[in-house]
Design a protein around this nucleic acid. Structure first.
Lengths: 113, 113
DNA sequence: TCCATATTTCTAGTATTATCGAAATATAGG
DNA sequence: CCTATATTTCGATAATACTAGAAATATGGA
């Protein structure tokens, strides 16, 4: 995953409403929920919700499927996985979130000061 | 970690310049880099960099330490760890990023349609 | 075809964020 | 104390994001 993509995914989740929506859908699993049900859950204007769903979808974090008159949104686990992998690989020390590869950090030679 | 906190951390990383800064510091490890060196690396105005460092720091992703006239910024691995944990626990199926707990998802009874 | 419901797109107002020059603050050394 | 360097804060501007009403589009059923 490229940095650009990571920023897009992070931005998609970096918003109260969207994180809440995403968490709700993750709970629901692959079946997801239709837009109306999500709107009901949060009581937000349809247009607003649509905007947020679009953000999450184009960031690759949700997938939509039409089912009759309803559109169901569900988490795209691959996308989320890619983000988490990116973060652990590039923004932690590798592994989990180790304080960098150094053994224990022997004292350094007293910087510039 | 609360949702609010997660949003703050995500927002801190959801920006080209800041993600780049953070990645650079993670590479450098616990010693970090002083502001001048970071500025040199990216060629951005001091004020702009200072703004971004403040964002990252108040989101709990960086820690600053003074060393003579210089201020060193280094990753706060605990903060980053907390964020990654939050994401895997709340935004994936639990574990890594499983497609939810359901076995294989037996067909559902044909929704509303 | 016509109507009702679901969802999106358009448009615009407001709010938040990013950038940067200039001024302010802090620290060290002479 | 004075100067030089490092960094932050201030203030202003430009860019981007959020919200929601109204209009448009899509789908299914009578």
């Amino acid at each position: 995953m490229e940095a650009k993509t990571a920023v897009a995914s992070l931005a998609a989740l970096a918003q109260d409403a969207r994180l809440a929506i995403f968490r709700l859908l993750v709970q629901k699993g692959p079946e997801g929920l239709c837009v109306g049900d999500i709107a009901a859950k949060f009581g937000m204007a349809a247009a607003t919700l649509s905007f947020h769903l679009k953000e999450l979808t184009s960031a690759g974090l949700l997938v939509a499927r039409q089912e009759g008159r309803f559109i169901y949104y569900a988490p795209n686990f691959e996308g989320m996985n890619a983000l988490v992998s990116y973060l652990t690989e590039n923004c932690c020390g590798g592994e989990t979130c180790a304080p960098a590869r150094r053994p224990v950090a022997r004292k350094r030679k007293e910087k510039i000061t």
